[in-house]
Amino acid sequence: MAATEPVYEVELSCAVNGEPVHVRVDTRESLLDLLRERLGVTGAKKGCDHGQCGACTVHLDGRRVVSCLTPAVQAAGADVTTVEGVAGPDGELHPLQQAFIDHDALQCGYCTPGQIMSGLACLAEGHAGDDDEVREYMSGNLCRCGAYAGIVAAVRAVAEQQGR
């Protein structure tokens, strides 16, 4: 690769919740800040900005990641899914969202988008086989209100629905 002018901004194309996005980003910008501050997609939350809480969890090409430690430039060409992209087009809740309501798996709601995205991945990865496995694989999402018991119940309920 020949030496070229240094690049400090990049034209980024990706999809956010199925919508194409074309935006010029600073190479320093995190995916989280891009979503929240530039694209108005604020479901993903900032709780630590250093990968220590999970509140910013989104799916990048179907895998859960912390968007605070994902440079936005790394989302080039990717499908980004946030909590806003989980419910059906006419607002029909995903079974996991409904299970969170039914099991009161939340209190203040601030960590909830990250919990939902992590819970969906936990199910898709096949890590919802029993309560202890869910506890382990949901431990990357802190909930300071302490809704863990409800979160485990909600993920397990959907796992059992899916198992049938």
Partner: peptide, 14 residues
């Protein structure tokens, strides 16, 4: 059930 849960599980709570 919690009345503002729907907003919280969909990301609609601002």
């Amino acid at each position: 059930r919690r009345v503002d849960a729907r907003e919280k599980v969909t990301g609609a709570a601002v």
